[in-house]
Computed example of a mutant assay.
Amino acid sequence: MDFVQNLDPSKLTLGLTVLSFIISPFAVPTYNLPIMLFGNVVAQSQESSDGQSLQLFAGLLGGSAIFDIIWMSKNEQNGFIRLLTIVLLIAKIPACIAFFLALRQRGGQFAGLGIRGGDLSGATVWDSMPGGFGGGGSNGYQNLDEERPTQFSRPAAPPSMPVPQQTAPAPAAPGTYQNV
């Protein structure tokens, strides 16, 4: 694990991008080069990004490693190109771990699970659901047994001014036009 922590994610991604570019004209998975190019851009702007793109790249990298295995089992390759594809697949594993560690160091969350370092308390998606499924802070919904708190009651409307009544217009002479 110390070996992976000492890896520089930007240099690792640059190496994977170069390897993906070298083997791209041959019979290899076509998604590797775009993913690596995206990762290279993410790795270069790692300090300024919000963590979501870093999380996305780490997930894409891990998922593409699984798809590489499926792709290699179904397709035939030249011996040397197959060796380079296997090297790329093996290099994806420490790269994925290095990006997850970099994400953890920056305080990021993993894969939309809402798990930040094992902390499962706090706001969840259920807190924002209609019907108050979250329990705390149910956004104005209440159980039938509860009394409604005063903080949600509406203040009384201020008294309004009486509206003056309009008088009916005088009847016009017979045979003339009237404006309404």
Rank of each mutant, 00 (worst) to 15 (best):
M1H: 09
A168C: 11
G59V: 05
N6P: 00
N139A: 13
A98I: 00
I35A: 02
I22A: 06
L14V: 04
Q165C: 09
L89M: 12
P164N: 14
T17R: 00
R106E: 04
F100E: 03
F110C: 06
I93L: 12
A58R: 01
M36R: 02
A95P: 01
Q178V: 14
G117C: 00
P174M: 02
S128R: 14
I86T: 04
D8T: 03
Q165K: 11
P158D: 09
L16N: 10
G122E: 13
D145M: 15
N179Q: 15
C96I: 00
S49K: 03
Q44E: 10
L16D: 01
I69A: 12
F67G: 05
L19P: 01
N32V: 07
S73N: 11
P174H: 03
W126G: 03
L113V: 06
R116T: 09
L84Y: 01
L83E: 04
A95Y: 00
L144Y: 06
L33Y: 03
R154C: 03
T85E: 01
F110K: 02
P29M: 07
G134S: 06
F99R: 00
Y141Q: 08
M72D: 00
N139D: 14
Y31N: 08
R82H: 13
G51E: 06
V41L: 14
A58W: 03
L83M: 13
R148A: 09
F3D: 12
S24Q: 10
E147M: 11
I69W: 05
G15D: 03
S64T: 08
S153T: 03
A168N: 11
T176L: 07
S10A: 15
S45H: 13
L103Y: 00
L84Q: 04
P130G: 08
G136W: 15
G107H: 08
P9G: 06
P149I: 05
G62Y: 03
P94E: 00
F3G: 12
I93D: 02
S45K: 14
S45V: 08
E147R: 08
I69F: 09
E146F: 09
S138W: 07
I70N: 05
G112E: 04
L61T: 00
N40D: 08
I35K: 01
G132F: 03
L101R: 13
G107Y: 05
I22P: 00
D119F: 12
S64Y: 06
L113C: 07
G112T: 07
L83G: 05
L19G: 02
Q165R: 14
T13R: 01
S128V: 14
S48K: 15
G62P: 04
N32Y: 01
A123N: 13
L14D: 02
Y31K: 10
N143W: 13
D145V: 11
I97W: 02
T85D: 05
P94K: 04
S20C: 06
A172Y: 05
N40P: 01
V4S: 09
G107I: 11
L33M: 10
G132W: 06
R154V: 05
V180D: 09
D50F: 05
N139F: 08
D2R: 15
S73L: 15
S45Q: 15
T30V: 10
W126E: 12
G131Y: 10
T176Y: 05
D145W: 12
